Amino acid sequence: MYAAAIPEPMQRSRGEASVALAQGATGLRIVGLRQQGSAKCILPYGAHGRGGSPEIVFLNTSGGLTGGDQLAYSVDLGPGVEATATTQTAERVYRSSAGAARVKVTAEVGAGGWLDWLPQETILFDDSRLDRRTVIDLAPGAGCLMLESLVLGRAAMGERVSRIAMRDIREIRQAGRPLMLEPLQLTAAALQAGAAGLGGARAIASIAMVGRGAADLLEPVRRALDEPGVMAAASAPEGRLMLRMLAVDGWPMRRQIARCLAVLRRGAPLPRVWQM
């Protein structure tokens, strides 16, 4: 008799990428760059975001996430540095057979600096599991614009999501004081909860803006909330600007996000890697 074969453990992806920028005697400099595993970070030459600031593009070369995968992105901006950080494409979270995929995003913005964190959407497939935490630490006088968007399956492919386990925590702090703490938990029950849950929406998004002039953009951004198939609202509590969106599909939500970002970024173009 032959001994029963022992199954090999499935390979899991690990990735970590970080970049640090600072002002030097001759201008903006890269003072730190680290890439490991499936995570990469590029600063495409000639790509500029708000006010001519540099763009940072993160990418996951594993092609997506599943249970047990780990991914970490980090940005460190020195005093007075302004930058836009994004992802090269939508992140896909596939069916998991063992545990959750874990993603950690951290950013530190020095005094007087500014970060636009504008990742492309996360696409969640049926039976996917994701545990993600995003934390932006602002020094006094610094500000940020944070976007997170989720799409439940690809409508054009006829995909439906009925089972899911996602925990997503987003936090913005300034000088150690919490300014925003937004936990989101998606389960099968939430998907089936009707108006008390997602109300049948297949895509959701949240945009937060903290810093100089944020509250002044409330009325202009409200006038931009006019995309058919998207239900959206904006508010400005205590000098912050908050937007929430529910959409029937990812494409109308993406168009609505683009119009809102044009207002919030005062006409600056979307990151070059975004395809619209």
Rank of each mutant, 00 (worst) to 15 (best):
M1A: 05
Y2F: 15
A3D: 05
A3Y: 15
I6H: 04
S13V: 12
R14I: 04
E16M: 06
A17V: 14
A20F: 15
A22Q: 12
G24V: 14
R29I: 08
I30Q: 02
V31Y: 13
L33I: 14
L33G: 01
R34C: 07
Q35M: 15
G37P: 02
K40V: 06
I42Q: 05
Y45F: 15
A47I: 11
G51K: 01
G52Q: 13
S53Y: 05
E55I: 04
I56C: 04
L59F: 10
T61I: 13
S62T: 08
G63W: 09
T66A: 00
V75R: 06
P79A: 11
G80M: 06
V81E: 00
A83P: 02
T84N: 01
A85N: 02
T86M: 04
Q88C: 06
A90Y: 01
A90V: 07
E91Y: 04
R92N: 05
Y94Q: 08
R95N: 06
S97P: 00
A100E: 12
A101G: 07
A107P: 01
G110M: 02
L115A: 03
L115E: 06
L115M: 08
D116I: 07
D116T: 08
W117G: 06
L118P: 09
P119A: 09
Q120C: 09
T122E: 01
F125L: 10
D126M: 05
D126Q: 05
D127W: 07
R129D: 03
D131I: 04
R133L: 08
V135D: 01
I136E: 00
A142W: 10
G143E: 04
C144A: 10
L145I: 10
V151H: 00
G153P: 12
M157V: 02
M157Q: 08
E159S: 09
R160H: 15
V161M: 07
I164H: 00
M166D: 01
I169T: 13
E171S: 07
A175M: 11
G176F: 12
P178Q: 11
E182R: 04
L186N: 02
A188E: 13
G194L: 09
A195D: 05
A195C: 11
A196L: 15
G199A: 03
V210L: 12
G213H: 13
A214M: 10
L217V: 07
L218F: 13
R222L: 06
R222N: 09
M231W: 09
M231F: 01
S235I: 14
A236Y: 03
A236T: 04
G239Y: 05
M242L: 15
G250T: 11
R254C: 10
R254H: 14
R255G: 09
I257R: 03
L261P: 05
A262K: 14
G267N: 09
G267F: 05
A268V: 14
A268K: 07
P269T: 13
P269D: 15
L270E: 14
P271W: 12
R272K: 14
V273N: 00
W274M: 08
M276G: 10
